[in-house]
Each structure stands twice: as C-alpha cells, then as structure tokens.
Design a protein around this nucleic acid. Structure first.
Lengths: 135, 135
DNA sequence: TATTATCCTATCGGATTACTAGGATATAAA
DNA sequence: TTTATATCCTAGTAATCCGATAGGATAATA
C-alpha cells in the first residue's frame, strides 16, 4: 500500500511542476488545493528538499519550487525517498536489501523468485516515468 | 511490503504442493521445516481452508492438503486472500475499490494514473503464475 | 476411551503511520 | 530597524496494523 506521505508528496510535486516559470509556492496554497493537512505536508516537503528534489525560499513571496526539470525527475528516485523500497520483500530489494530470518537459501525460495519478477516490472515503470509524465 | 502472513502462506502452500499423492501434512511439520511460528501458521492455514484453497483432516494422520491442482491455483487469487488488494492505492483496486478522501476527480489525479500502470503490470504477473510455477 | 490434530476466539506488545505542537530561523517589505 | 511572512526543526501522540500467543473446543483415529 502506498503511504499517504508518498501520495501527498507526489501530488505536491506535480502541483509545483505545473507552475509558470517555476515560481515558489507556499505550503498553505498546496495543502488547500490538494486537501492535505498543512503540517503534514510541511514535513513531507522538508524531506523532499533535504533529498535534493525541491528548493525553498523563506519570507514573503517564498515557498517551494522544483530544482530540476520535471522530465529529469524519475519516479523511481522519488518513490525510494518517500516510500522506501520498491520491492515487496527486502530480500529482493536493490537499494534496501536485507536477508530473511526464515530463509536458509534465498535462491531456493519460491516467494523470492516470484517477487523478483514483480520488482522488475514495477521498477521498469518507475524508471521510465518522470514527473513530467504525471501531468 | 509483503506481509509475513502472505509469505508464510505461500511457503506453506508450495510445501503442500510438493507432497506425493497430496498427502495431508501437519501444521507442526510445515512450521518446523519452514521456520514459521506454529500458532501463527495455524491461523494462516485456517483462512486458506475457509477460502477454498486447502482441505483438512483432524486426528491422527491428519493435516492440511491442497484442494486443487497447483497449476490451477493462480497467484492473484492467493494474494487477494492473504495480502488483500494487489493495487497500491484503493482507488485503482479492482476487487477492493475505495474512493479517496482528498481527490475530487479521480481521472485527473496524477498518482491515480501511475498506479493503474503498476497495478496492471503486477496483476499480469500474478494472473499468469500459478502455485506450480513456484516450485 | 485416550490420543492426536485441527478449530476458533480473544488478546497483546511493538512497530508504523498519519498527523500535531510549538517555537526557532531566515527573508522581505514597511 | 521593525514587523510580517514563511520555512525550518524537534518532539510527541493517537490510532491502526502486524506478528505472534493463549487456551480451550471439536472432531477423528486407534
């Protein structure tokens, strides 16, 4: 299940992508327009900024804006920051790999191999979709 | 993330699929072999039985067994019982559909359309893989 | 009748999620 | 230089979910 955090983050980013001249937009404006709790959105935009997706300006006329062209913001990158692993199990995750407690042999695990298939097909979508495609 | 419930359920089913003549296997045998808490597995096998995947026999020589040929047990069906929706958001789920609180227009939602793509590719895998493929 | 194994309901601790509180800091306009 | 504006940042919290457990009821076999 996609977390609200990820959903809200994606919606906010598409909102920013639609701005003329990449003008800064205030949190309150986005939160009202997209029906998102302002304080919650605040923390989400903060992590997006800390991870290099957004820039910010303080004071009057301030707000958040995209740091890159929407075409260059891959969904896989955003998903990994907001949602975490793309894989359904840690033992097939490329960026968040963990061994399973219960599995003596990963390659012999039936679930493992099925989940590799799912990961590959999902990753294929997220790698080939950018923020520009969402608009 | 795939829940332990689903993972354990799938592992138990593949264990049963490997039995000669579809002989009943006791919970304790599976739980030991697959390193799964016996009581937890008990509840999982119970729901699989109630949903028509497994049959059971009480008393000595009893246990659980598959009710269908592994080839005829589609992953999509098992996933929906154990994990719930295959889609990442309820608003694109075919079997567990729910509207979003924050979305006034589903079709205009950027996240919505991306998640339809993901759902379709995942569903395509689960619909075309059976328990027999896991072995 | 004793033993075996599933059936069933209820519960519980811990982790995660969605969200909130409250002030610190920086910027811009007056 | 003051005031208003808006982000920055650290905690905290209520609610929910997950994984696992307890303990007995029921049914089948020997």
């Amino acid at each position: 299940m996609l977390s609200k955090k990820t959903k809200y983050g994606l919606k906010a980013m598409t909102y920013l992508a639609r701005q003329e001249n990449n003008e800064p937009v205030q949190i309150g404006v986005i939160s009202k327009s997209e029906n998102i709790s302002q304080k919650f959105l605040e923390s989400i935009l903060l992590t997006l900024r800390k991870n290099g997706f957004l820039g910010s300006k303080k004071g009057k006329g301030g707000g958040y804006y995209l740091l890159k062209d929407p075409k260059d913001i891959k969904m896989s990158a955003v998903m990994r920051i907001l949602e975490g692993p793309i894989a359904m199990v840690p033992c097939v995750s490329l960026n968040f790999y963990e061994t399973c407690d219960d599995c003596p042999d990963e390659n012999a695990c039936a679930v493992h191999n099925l989940m590799i298939e799912v990961r590959d097909s999902t990753l294929n979508i997220f790698n080939n979709r950018s923020l520009a495609d969402l608009i």
